[in-house]
Amino acid sequence: MQALLAPIKQFLQCETPDEWIAEAIRPEQLSALLIDHCNCELKAAQTAMFLIRKYAIDKASGELLLNWAKPYEEFVYNKQRSVKDFLAREAKKNELIGELKPKVGVDYGPDLIAKMVRLIKEEFHHFEQVLAIMLARDIPYQNLTAGRYAKGMMKHVRTHEPATLIDKLIVGAFIEARSCERFAKLAPHLDEGLRKFYVSLLRSEARHYQDYLTLAQEISADDIAVRVDHFAKVEAELICEPDREFKFHSGRPA
């Protein structure tokens, strides 16, 4: 665990405040923690799909991605949803059926597709894992509005290409790195089942942040260090500032 966390702690400019951990491990916050975590896993998959569709593939390939996401989005937006029925569906719901073809002339297309498809598959799997934990603990799934964390990061994304894509990838790296850091800090305070689950997520989350950074540098003609440093400061402020709403990525409890 420490070997995985060392580069992440160096990448992030601050650790999660102890006040957030104290709030997160309160028994009455368990439902809120798991529900938001569940939503975050799905959002991560949807974001990666958006990046592939917008920047790396043609329309026909985009339809393949939409079909992959369909069972998950039907579950989320169906008010008559059944978690048990959804989880019991065949494993093929988390499979990309067909081959995605990179856009002609997009050099980074194949690498972006490969890294993001693997990320999507893992995030969908994590979404189902959290759902199963919630079902076992009689915690109903809920749709949630986004918190200030991701919105606060996205406000700083530049509005011209390829800078927009580069910045979005850097933002993705920070979200994944913060998730990994919080899983590690939360794990020792949770019951055995949740502790083992959160520790099991560390390796994939650590790789996700590295994949995002690798893609950002591959696409950028310049060293991305300046942009990484900028977003590191933004991210640290969001994590340390008072936050009135408790979320998996919220700041210090107000």
Score class of each variant (00 low, 15 high):
residue 150 A to V: 11
residue 128 E to D: 08
residue 74 E to W: 04
residue 202 L to D: 04
residue 225 A to T: 15
residue 93 K to Y: 01
residue 119 L to N: 08
residue 97 I to Y: 08
residue 41 E to S: 04
residue 6 A to Q: 11
residue 54 K to G: 05
residue 129 Q to C: 11
residue 94 N to T: 03
residue 162 P to H: 12
residue 79 K to Q: 14
residue 115 K to P: 03
residue 239 I to R: 13
residue 23 E to L: 11
residue 175 I to N: 08
residue 198 Y to H: 13
residue 85 D to Y: 09
residue 148 R to V: 15
residue 67 N to D: 14
residue 227 R to A: 07
residue 253 P to I: 01
residue 170 I to C: 07
residue 174 F to M: 10
residue 220 S to G: 01
residue 241 E to S: 13
residue 226 V to H: 11
residue 125 H to P: 05
residue 94 N to P: 02
residue 222 D to K: 12
residue 103 K to P: 03
residue 152 G to P: 09
residue 16 T to S: 07
residue 176 E to R: 08
residue 26 R to S: 05
residue 49 M to T: 09
residue 36 D to W: 02
residue 39 N to K: 05
residue 118 R to E: 09
residue 58 D to Y: 04
residue 20 W to I: 00
residue 73 E to N: 15
residue 226 V to G: 07
residue 78 N to Q: 05
residue 82 S to E: 04
residue 53 R to K: 14
residue 197 F to Q: 15
residue 36 D to E: 04
residue 88 A to K: 06
residue 102 P to W: 01
residue 46 Q to F: 07
residue 231 F to E: 02
residue 148 R to K: 11
residue 234 V to I: 14
residue 160 H to Q: 15
residue 188 P to K: 05
residue 169 L to C: 08
residue 123 E to S: 02
residue 223 D to A: 09
residue 92 K to D: 13
residue 140 P to H: 08
residue 99 E to H: 13
residue 170 I to L: 06
residue 50 F to V: 09
residue 83 V to T: 15
residue 234 V to C: 04
residue 76 V to N: 07
residue 93 K to W: 00
residue 241 E to M: 10
residue 121 K to G: 11
residue 58 D to P: 03
residue 187 A to F: 03
residue 11 F to C: 02
residue 243 D to L: 03
residue 8 I to L: 10
residue 123 E to F: 01
residue 92 K to G: 12
residue 84 K to A: 15
residue 230 H to C: 08
residue 154 M to F: 10
residue 207 R to E: 12
residue 66 L to P: 04
residue 1 M to G: 12
residue 217 Q to M: 02
residue 202 L to E: 12
residue 130 V to S: 05
residue 128 E to S: 10
residue 184 A to D: 12
residue 2 Q to R: 12
residue 227 R to Y: 06
residue 38 C to D: 06
residue 41 E to V: 01
residue 116 M to V: 00
residue 216 A to S: 06
residue 219 I to C: 03
residue 250 S to I: 01
residue 228 V to F: 04
residue 36 D to L: 03
residue 41 E to W: 01
residue 196 K to L: 14
residue 203 R to G: 14
residue 28 E to A: 09
residue 102 P to S: 00
residue 149 Y to L: 10
residue 167 D to S: 07
residue 181 E to L: 09
residue 202 L to T: 06
residue 20 W to N: 02
residue 73 E to G: 06
residue 210 Q to L: 14
residue 251 G to R: 04
residue 99 E to L: 15
residue 165 L to M: 10
residue 233 K to T: 09
residue 211 D to T: 03
residue 183 F to I: 02
residue 96 L to A: 00
residue 77 Y to M: 06
residue 105 G to R: 00
residue 223 D to V: 03
residue 145 T to M: 11
